[in-house]
Design a protein around this nucleic acid. Structure first.
Length: 426
DNA sequence: TCTGGGGTCCTAGGACCC
DNA sequence: TCTGGGGTCCTAGGACCC
């Protein structure tokens, strides 16, 4: 049996943890740039705040209902996520946990006897909540896809399910799938949902009964056949090996306001490169390629429709690197190549690819710092920036004014990761 | 005026090899 | 006018996820 543990309204729950006064008040968290709503509590859902809805379109309803609004605070969420995951590893063992996203993890419950599945899941839920203060929902079933179905139904009916749903018998599975629209199945996105409804396939049980060959032709090849099998309770999406290496690390952002000139875009690209390089080093990787992209607005003078166009440039390095200076050195010429005067630039991004594990640290202890790709310098810079303030130490190429910087007007304190923002008890 | 950011996997098709 | 077969590697693009 597989289980998925999913934190309820995760970002909002994190904010509430340090603001218990908001426990029964609607709360929402905004995306970067305070653009969209990306997390909502049940109270906020109830009064009609939409998911991924633009903030400005919901401002009226938010103000009228006294909704607490936060800019996203990823330092805080990341740290609390780690606590939740550590708790799960403690409960079922390191190798049985696959961290799927910041607020979700799959568990392999193969070692739990079938008849104690329900109580085991209940205990997992209660322990996480007790140790971390974050509420979670647990869904368990023979396959990952079915466990997601269980989790979703449990969330939809929190009172009856008590936050835990286990699907074991074929009757339970059939009943659950009949109550689940194809749109809500993990692996069926917008395109496939449209296609399925067109063919008269509306719920999960109908989809489950389609032939595999049909799925291969119509739902993305082997991905489709896997989906059908999973729905039938035959697990074929394996637990991911935690030692698997990542493929890419990216830092991309909308600008706080549109940018028209090259120097500012170069500053932004240099800054994003620095961020991406920090992530790279923190996870002990080095990159062999860098891709820079920008998103421009379609530039039709009289038209206001949102018609983003992206363009990109990339380059490969002969030797993998995690050195910020070197990466910036590669990124800036690419940015110049991308730039075309007269366009309105909305967003830029840096993607580091062809990652390799950077295990040369011990091997190079006896080299000079320069030969060693300035590893010690990088480590010193990272330590200062992490423990004090972001970008106390930075490369000049990333700019001093930073007019393009995103807005984040409503961010809470980074209670658990910055000394000067610790939670205070009066 | 204002619409996020960071990932994964798969497939088709082109370039190149013998 | 005729023009093999088999393989690898790479990239672009599309779909999906939270």
């Amino acid at each position: 049996m597989k289980a998925i543990v999913d934190c309820n309204s995760f970002y909002c729950s994190c904010e509430r943890l340090f603001r218990p006064d908001l426990d029964h008040q609607p709360v929402v968290v905004l995306s970067n740039n305070d653009g969209c709503i990306i997390s909502r509590t049940d109270e906020a859902k109830k009064i009609g705040v939409g998911m991924a809805a633009p903030y400005y379109q919901n401002k009226e309803i938010i103000e009228k209902n006294n909704v607490a609004v936060f800019s996203s605070n990823y330092n805080l969420y990341g740290d609390l996520s780690m606590r939740v995951m550590d708790t799960l590893r403690c409960l079922v063992g390191d190798d049985q946990v696959e961290v799927y996203s910041v607020d979700e993890a799959f568990l392999d419950l193969g070692m739990v006897p079938e008849k104690s599945m329900q109580s085991a899941c209940k205990e997992i839920k209660e322990t996480v909540e007790k140790w971390t203060g974050i509420k979670v929902t647990v869904g368990a079933a023979p396959s990952k896809v079915l466990s997601k179905v269980a989790n979703r139904l449990s969330k939809k009916n929190k009172i009856a399910s008590q936050g835990v749903m286990v699907l074991q018998s074929i009757h339970e599975i059939k009943d659950a799938l009949e109550r689940t629209a194809v749109d809500d199945i993990w692996g069926v996105g917008r395109q496939y949902a449209i296609k399925l409804h067109h063919l008269g396939i509306d719920d999960g049980w109908q989809l489950r009964n389609m032939p595999e060959e049909w799925a291969r032709k119509n739902l993305g090849g082997v991905v489709g056949t896997r989906l059908i099998k999973e729905l039938r309770g035959i697990p074929c999406i394996p637990m991911k090996d935690p030692l698997d290496t990542k493929k890419m690390i990216a830092t991309t952002r909308m600008f706080g306001k549109p940018v028209f000139n090259l120097p500012e875009i170069k500053e932004a690209v240099a800054t994003y490169t620095s961020r991406a390089a920090e992530k790279l080093r923190r996870q002990f990787y080095a990159a062999k390629s860098i891709q820079v992209f920008v998103v421009t607005n379609g530039y039709k003078k009289d038209k206001y429709e949102y018609n983003p166009q992206s363009r990109y440039q990339y380059t490969n390095f002969p030797v993998a690197t995690a050195n910020t200076a070197e990466l910036i050195h590669h990124a800036l010429p690419l940015t110049e190549k991308l730039f075309e005067p007269g366009l309105k630039y909305l967003k830029a991004g840096v993607i580091l690819g062809k990652l390799v594990p950077d295990n040369s640290i011990q091997a190079n202890l006896f080299m000079t710092d320069a030969q060693n790709n300035h590893r010690f310098l990088m480590e010193a810079v990272d330590n200062i920036n992490f423990s004090h303030r972001d970008d106390v130490v930075k490369y000049l190429a990333s700019g001093l004014q930073r007019n393009w910087k995103m807005r984040q007007e409503l961010r809470s304190k980074r209670f658990t990761t910055r000394w000067n923002e610790l939670y205070e008890i009066k």
